[in-house]
Design a protein around this nucleic acid. Structure first.
Lengths: 196, 196
DNA sequence: GAATTTGCACTGACCGGTCAGTTTAAACGG
DNA sequence: CCGTTTAAACTGACCGGTCAGTGCAAATTC
């Protein structure tokens, strides 16, 4: 794949992400994406088989970036520290690609949706990384009895997603550090809960 | 409004909710909604000004039901008990109207979306009820220092929404009681966190 | 109390616009 | 040269919205 092609696809990803995140995949037209990317419509069909194929590639691309960042947070010291690093990376990602969060949240739970299969796999990628960190926390005895690691991981991922969206849409004046702190307060609170 | 009209609108709400929740407002056609409701297309336009107006009415209708149930949970005894009742009511609502959760989640955070204004108001209705309960908890000293009531309320609402969706889509085998317990574990955990 | 009118609720064929995707011939660039 | 991009016209299916007309029950008239 030539450098030119790569650049074109990147422009298309950026444009599609912006528009699709804002208005939903179904109501964005291919002509709009082409215009936003500053590219001819034919170029889209030269690079992608269809509008759906473009969105699907976009989904993969985004998850790849997120997964990469989360994996980079795995190394850190104590189990709390690395979980905090993970939370921070995830919030940073949502802050940087807000439209991706909007796209994800509006398609992920659409039961028989066209992307449900793809998205389930992508979700698993992310959740399994979170689960790795969560397991370290559990092994360190910092998770209350009765909390299942799998459940907690899925919940943390979903919760971070909505908190990030809510932050951007309804409380944009809060800083990222502030938001991270309120999430960590919750995670630490959970870790410090009394065993019943 | 005649009984006949009421029945027709109810059929339209049911049909629209099912289809719009599954596939998104933009990609469901008016003809499909009419067919699902067993009604002619013209009937929709007799009862509603437009497709958008139908969806907006649907949104109001759903939030009204949810708000009613949440207010019914306000009475209960201790602050923990009534918060638990609220959590239970909300999970029950999402379980009963899963499509409403899908509709809400895919429109609520769409920044300049057509529903954003309406949805912000509806969100405020619900969050303010949650805030009332949360405030009781805070007044009883069961919330760690530094946690703002408004933030915690918005977070709880969003979290319950995604947990309910995740439950239905990815872990349907779990019982409602089980899910409620894991959420309450989290809320109680937070209430028991050490003051720093 | 039969005939007629009124008005609400509903019908479904139809219209005009929109949009994904195609085609083509020509230009560009490494 | 060959892979890529462009511009613009075109196709055809689809979809939101319209509208003239139907069904029907209650009210009105004689």
């Amino acid at each position: 794949m030539s450098a030119r092609t790569t650049a074109t696809k990147q422009k298309l990803f950026d444009a599609a992400l912006k528009l699709v995140g804002e208005r939903g995949a179904a109501s964005v037209t291919v002509d709009e994406i082409a215009a936003e990317a500053g590219v001819a419509k034919g170029t889209i069909y030269y690079n992608f088989a269809s509008k759906d194929a473009l969105v699907e590639a976009l989904l993969h691309h985004g998850v790849e970036i997120l997964a990469g960042r989360l994996r980079s947070a795995e190394a850190a010291g104590s189990s709390e520290d690395s979980l905090e690093a993970l939370v921070d990376q995830m919030l940073g990602f949502w802050a940087e690609y807000p439209a991706f969060g909007q796209l994800l949240v509006s398609e992920l739970w659409r039961t028989p949706g066209q992307w449900h299969g793809t998205l389930s796999l992508l979700r698993d990628d992310i959740v399994s990384i979170v689960r790795g960190q969560m397991k370290r926390l559990a092994d360190a005895g910092r998770l209350p009895e009765g909390v299942e690691v799998g459940t907690a991981s899925a919940a943390l991922f979903g919760t971070l997603l909505v908190i990030a969206l809510d932050w951007q849409v309804f409380q944009p004046e809060r800083s990222r550090a502030e938001v991270r702190e309120s999430v960590m307060l919750l995670v630490r609170g959970l870790g410090q809960a009394r065993r019943s």
